[in-house]
Design a protein around this nucleic acid. Structure first.
Length: 989
DNA sequence: GTAATGGATCTTTTT
DNA sequence: GATCCATTAC
């Protein structure tokens, strides 16, 4: 490969041995990895299968593979091209899942569990569902065993989520419960921690200067009064022996806690295996255990060369997997500890920072029980070479230096950072973009309050677009566009607020990442209109609508509830007219929602997402407006997030979190809300269960027994005291700022509100960066208010090129007979709740669940479900898959249909689609046939050989099955076209 | 002058 | 719960 710079070339050329690559931002990491990969594959004695490349995201894996292909097709000898057919590039998750499904028996053998995972094992990605599942496991377990750990069980049942989290943390470190005792973590000793070190740290806490009576280093000692008294400390005198208190905290007896965590953890694993239910964490942990315990499986999956990308995002478990995978010491890890921002996912930058020590220790652990000829890591680590990438092809030197400065800023006034240590860890990089010249700056803007902060962001955006020049890779300049600008926020809430402001001010923007879309302006407008349309008497539903239209608060009050009738104002015509129009659509929900957005001229990423969510939420039952209102309110209440994928197909700024900006680059970056408490976030760990190698496993809550047999769960003074001696590490916040600033090529604006954080103050006060006055308009820049009027709102061009996503239900027609919904065609006349419940139970039954008698009584249709499932099982299918999402691109239309198949059954020679229908009558049968046909064609697409697919309408109430072959794709395309013509605003125009 | 104290304010990130 | 900051105490 040509075009590699010397530091890149050195890495690509060193194909053997163990290499740690420090790849700073914008240094051409992917390029180098691909070059190195090809150099390895070109070797005569290397087969395609010998090389493995592991990444974290599907995108990264795909990009690596694409780049490898594009650089080789027709450019390398045929034998090399041949090797690339067996290329092994995958994500950690995918690799681990394959490993687990490869040898499920070894896993059960190792753990001593009777049950085994089957090929039908499914990964549940949604963490909220996993927490619910864990809670069930915990509750069931405690029912029989709570008495064995009296106090610990009481705390656990109150804090199931926290227990789940700490167990996930243990998994990521390869600490696993065996039937007896622990595996990994020095046979569980890590859970106790390094007691001498804890004792010493606690005893070195600053001496007590505070007044009596509680001579105790704890802040707010009063809240521990009860537990200290219960623990036998004498609080009567002025002198409370601080030293004995300290030792007692360090040496707290945690035997019951450890026993409980062990047993619940083991039970969670056992039940997950029995239920064929995986999480990301379990899969990774299981893959590790299989590679550890099954020599054959390890050899089968092994490789001679391994490269791991984004190595700063790995955890101990993944590093061990990597070490065991290799048969030779040819490991290349690539990453940048300065961009390690995923500790909440249990990643640890120590893997790359202290690579030498960690690999040596892990290798020792993995080999210690084995003779020399049967080692799991069968090679010596040998020399470990550290090779940095030092040339940055993205940013100006000014930006690079500003980013590096972030790593040295204290997060609170008394935090002391050791400059020398940091200097030792930091590899400096230099800008290789001289063409940028002086067209680069970092400026600071301080605002009086957080509301004007949003305006300031927009003002800054407009200033950039009007005045700044962007340096193209070839060195030429052109005027800046909206699309050159990214606003990177610490919190999603800020992203959302900003997006809303862009909407009202007419600045084109798209929101990226997982967002609480129901809390956006769009979401709130839908909710307000639905309420207003749904209920004549809900006068207050109209308030947000009027406010959004810009009516003054006083006028609104006089429209809704005037202090006296003489002041009453009429509801504006535009609103009543719209309400009337919407009321006529109240039976066509999707149409209704689209009309609401059309009223505002809104058609964007968020409206798309809301449309998809709302239309896919109704299943075969019909959705009422009340159902939708409930759904939205529930989503708001539970902070539900949905993925908004904005395609940058128009000139708009990007709004996203700093986290999701990793790996991306923009000419201009604005980082707002550098406010105290927010960025850096100073909220400490409040998880009830905590685990760190030094302090071990501890719990922040304890049961306090009062004299009179009463008891209650209170903060644990022991844990509080220990934590006081180990202040929280906020270096990740610095790295986050590093990531944010280093996304920029030329310009950065930092914005803070009335209480700027230490981060902001550093740049504004200590650096030599320009400070712009808030509210002042940059020269030549029109005032925002003027801009509001002169810029046509909305600045939303047609979305013709955009691929639309429709729910399958959107293309179904249920006719106007639905006016009678609730009496006739609504599922058994019992509403959506009923139908949803049956689907939920049917799903669980397909997974082996036996409904309770109560459920059988409440839902008589379940008998039919059981019969259908029994029939399916009797025919020995390869796979039964309930509730699987599918999507079908429609030929000739720029549309993808999405839906959820109730039950997908795979046989060796054909595939069946089953759908539960609870309708009393079959009047919608033809629509349902269309629905299942969509599923059928989507399912056929899963399989490369396109097996024949049959559809089965399961009429549960009528106790019949209707089997048919799917309608042709043309029928689906025709209907989709009709629906689009009727609802697409562009089509009408 | 320093040290203690109370009040106000903030409260994530998601393959 | 952690942090900063203004106020109070001496």
């Amino acid at each position: 490969m040509t075009g590699l710079n010397p530091s890149q070339q050195a890495i690509a050329d060193r194909t053997e041995g163990i290499i740690v690559v420090d790849a700073g931002p914008g240094t051409g990491k992917t390029y180098t990895v691909v070059g190195r990969y090809l150099n390895i594959v070109k070797k005569r004695d290397v087969k395609g299968r010998d090389v493995v490349l592991l990444t974290f995201t599907n995108n990264a894996a795909r990009e690596m593979e694409d780049r490898i292909r594009s650089q080789t097709v027709g450019k390398v000898p045929p034998d090399v091209e041949d090797k690339l057919k067996s290329i092994r590039v995958s994500t950690f998750d995918a690799f681990c899942l394959a490993t687990v499904l490869d040898s499920p028996q070894s896993l059960s053998d190792f753990l001593g569990i009777r049950e085994t995972l089957t090929h039908g094992a499914r990964t549940v990605e949604k963490d909220s569902l996993n927490k619910i599942y864990f809670r069930q496991v915990l509750d069931r377990f405690l029912t029989g065993h709570a008495a064995e750990y009296p106090d610990a069980a009481a705390v656990a049942s109150e804090h199931a989520d926290a227990l789940y989290q700490v167990i996930a943390k243990l998994m990521s470190r390869g600490i696993v419960p065996l039937r007896r005792g622990w595996f990994g973590g020095h046979d569980g000793r890590d859970l106790i921690g390094d007691l001498p070190a804890v004792r010493e740290a606690v005893s070195e806490l600053p001496s007590v200067k505070k007044k009596d009576p509680l001579q105790c280093p704890l802040p707010n000692p009063e809240q521990y009064r009860d537990s200290l008294l219960a623990a036998g400390f004498d609080l009567s005198g002025t002198d409370l022996f601080p030293n004995s208190l300290r030792t007692a905290a360090a040496d707290e007896d945690r035997t019951p806690l450890l026993a409980l965590v062990h047993d619940v953890y083991f039970e969670f694993i056992r039940r997950s295996i029995a239920d064929d239910r995986l999480t990301f964490g379990l899969t990774a942990c299981f893959a590790f255990l299989i590679l550890y315990s099954d020599d054959t499986a390890r050899r089968r999956l092994s490789c001679r060369y391994l490269m791991i990308d984004e190595f700063q995002d790995t955890n101990a478990n993944q590093l061990m997997i990597g070490l065991m995978l290799l048969t030779e010491p040819n490991l290349c890890v690539v990453g940048d500890w300065k961009q390690g921002i995923y500790s909440f996912r249990n990643a640890t930058v120590e893997n790359i920072l202290y690579f030498r020590e960690r690999t040596a220790a892990l290798r020792k652990f993995l080999n210690e029980d084995r003779p020399a000829d049967r080692r799991r890591v069968p090679y010596a680590l040998g020399e470990i070479t550290e090779l940095p990438l030092v040339e940055n092809y993205r940013s100006s030197q000014l930006i690079i230096d500003a980013a590096y400065a972030a790593l040295y800023i204290p997060t609170r006034s008394d935090e002391e950072l050791d400059r020398a240590t940091l200097d030792g860890l930091v590899t400096r990089i230099t800008s290789a973009r001289p063409a940028i010249g002086t067209a680069t700056a970092l400026e600071c803007v301080s605002c009086p309050d957080s509301d004007s902060e949003l305006d300031e962001v927009l003002r800054t955006v407009i200033g950039y677009v009007q005045h700044n020049q962007i340096c193209e890779p070839d060195g030429t300049f052109r005027p800046a566009r909206f699309a050159d600008i990214a606003v990177l926020c610490r919190k999603t809430a800020t992203c959302r607020a900003l997006y809303d402001r862009c909407g009202t001010c007419g600045v084109p923007a798209f929101l990226q990442g997982d967002m609480e879309i129901m809390r956006t302006r769009e979401g709130k407008l839908v909710l307000a209109w639905l309420k207003y349309v749904n209920n004549d008497f809900d006068r207050w539903g109209i308030v947000p609508i009027l406010a959004d239209l810009g009516y003054p608060a006083a006028d609104i009050r006089n429209m809704i509830a005037p202090p006296d009738e003489s002041r009453r104002l009429p509801i504006p015509d535009e609103v009543t007219r719209q309400r009337k129009a919407l009321r006529q659509k109240r039976r066509r929900i999707t149409d209704l929602v689209s009309s609401i957005f059309a009223f505002y001229g809104l058609n964007n990423d968020v409206t798309q997402a809301i449309n998809t969510v709302l239309s896919s939420s109704h299943r075969n039952s019909l959705l009422t407006i009340s159902d939708l209102i409930n759904l939205i309110e529930n989503d708001i209440a539970t902070d539900t997030r949905y993925t908004v994928d904005g395609l940058p197909d128009r000139d708009a700024i990007t709004i996203q979190t700093v986290h999701s900006s990793k790996g991306l680059e923009y000419p201009i970056v604005i980082i707002p809300a550098l406010d105290r408490g927010s960025f850096p976030n100073t909220r400490g760990d409040t998880d009830v269960y905590q685990f760190q190698p030094v302090t071990g496993l501890r719990c922040r809550r304890a049961v306090v027994h009062f004299a009179g047999r009463e008891q209650s769960v209170q903060p644990s003074w022991q844990t509080a005291l220990v934590n006081l001696a180990f202040p929280p590490d906020r270096s990740e916040e610095r790295r986050l700022l590093f990531v944010g600033i280093s996304r920029a090529k030329q310009y950065v604006t930092l914005i803070a509100g009335s209480k700027p954080s230490t981060f902001f103050k550093y740049y504004a006060e200590e650096g030599s960066y320009p400070v712009r006055k808030a509210g002042t308009v940059p020269p030549h820049c029109p005032r925002l208010s003027e801009l509001n009027q002169t810029t046509p709102v909305p600045v939303v061009p047609a979305f013709a090129s955009r691929r639309r996503s429709l729910g399958v239900h959107d293309i179904l027609r249920f006719g106007d007979e639905q006016e009678n919904a609730g009496s006739g065609d609504e599922v058994c006349g019992k509403g959506m709740e009923y139908g949803t419940q049956i689907h939920l139970l049917a799903q669980k039954m397909a997974e082996g669940y036996e409904p309770t008698d109560r459920e059988k009584t409440d839902y008589p249709q379940l008998t039919r479900v059981a019969a259908v499932l029994a029939d399916i099982n009797a025919r020995h299918p390869d796979l039964i898959c309930p509730e699987i999402e599918c999507s079908l691109p429609v030929d000739g239309q720029n549309v993808t249909l999405r839906g959820i198949i109730d039950l997908l059954v795979v046989f060796p020679d054909h595939v069946e689609i089953h759908d539960w229908k609870t309708d009393v009558e079959d009047r919608f049968a033809s629509e349902y046939r269309l629905q299942l046909s969509v599923y059928a064609h989507a399912a056929a697409g899963f399989y490369p050989n396109h097996p024949p697919v049959t559809c089965h309408l399961q009429w549960l109430t009528r106790e019949t099955t209707e089997t048919f072959t799917p309608l042709p794709p043309a029928a689906i395309a025709e209907r989709t076209g009709e629906i689009l013509a009727a609802t697409d605003p562009a089509g009408r125009a």
